[in-house]
């Protein structure tokens, strides 16, 4: 059972990325959600069939992006749905909160974890109370605001860590991953200008 789950999890990020990339690009010609979904699946099949240096494009993608964390998987699913339905989640507060937390979490983790900074924040995921307390604070706020998908994703990640369901013994690897971080940054690059312009527009009227 576990080898099958591992096999699927290892390929889930790559599959969703290829799917959403092709589904999004197909939007130029495909006008319905069904057509875009079909294009996404077709893209997956093509990625499986075309080989570069004796490895399929899909295999290259799998080797490149690793498996997702629980929040990362949820985010990719949301993006895949968005690529198919063309429904934007930018104005959904839960989406903004979830992606915002991923952006902040990644900023806390990756610069130190890969050597840009001298303090290695990755070690916080091995033991100690700081990371659990940060997660607790996020969970309490998410419950308070009824962001149940965020709660679900985080709780699944924590549960996976507690059950040692993944291969890593570091909590960070269950609650965030670089692919999710990049997608969350992308989301906030789209969210921030609108948010900023609304704030600026509201500022003069408040002053009046």
């Amino acid at each position: 059972m576990m080898p099958t789950i591992d096999f699927l999890l290892d390929r889930s990020s790559a599959a969703l990325i290829v799917f959403m990339a092709v589904a999004t690009m197909s939007g130029i010609v495909a006008k319905t959600a069904t057509a875009r979904a079909a294009a996404g699946i077709g893209g997956l099949v093509i990625a499986l069939l075309i080989t570069i240096s004796k490895r399929s494009i899909f295999d290259w993608a799998v080797s490149a992006v690793e498996r997702p964390s629980a929040p990362g998987l949820l985010l990719l699913v949301v993006f895949a749905i968005s690529a198919t339905t063309w429904r934007s989640y930018r104005l959904v507060p839960e989406f903004r909160f979830g992606t915002g937390m991923l952006v902040l979490g990644g900023l806390l983790l990756y610069p130190g974890g890969v050597g840009f900074l001298n303090y290695d924040t990755y070690v916080l995921g091995y033991s100690g109370y700081l990371l659990p307390m940060l997660l607790a604070a996020i969970l309490v706020y998410a419950v308070y605001r009824h962001y149940f998908l965020v709660v679900l994703a985080l709780n699944l990640g924590i549960l996976g860590f507690l059950l040692s369901a993944g291969r890593s013994l570091n909590l960070w690897d269950y609650v965030i991953d670089p692919v999710a971080w990049f997608f969350a940054i992308g989301a906030w690059l789209a969210i921030a200008p609108g948010l900023l312009s609304r704030k600026l527009a509201a500022a003069p009227s408040l002053a009046n």
Binding site: P132, M133, V140, L154, N155, F161, L162, L171
Partner: peptide
């Protein structure tokens, strides 16, 4: 959800002590 989260965080804190 709050109860589930609290239980998980409590077990998590115990594990990561």
């Amino acid at each position: 959800t709050l109860f589930c989260s609290v239980v998980l965080i409590a077990i998590l804190s115990h594990k990561m002590a």
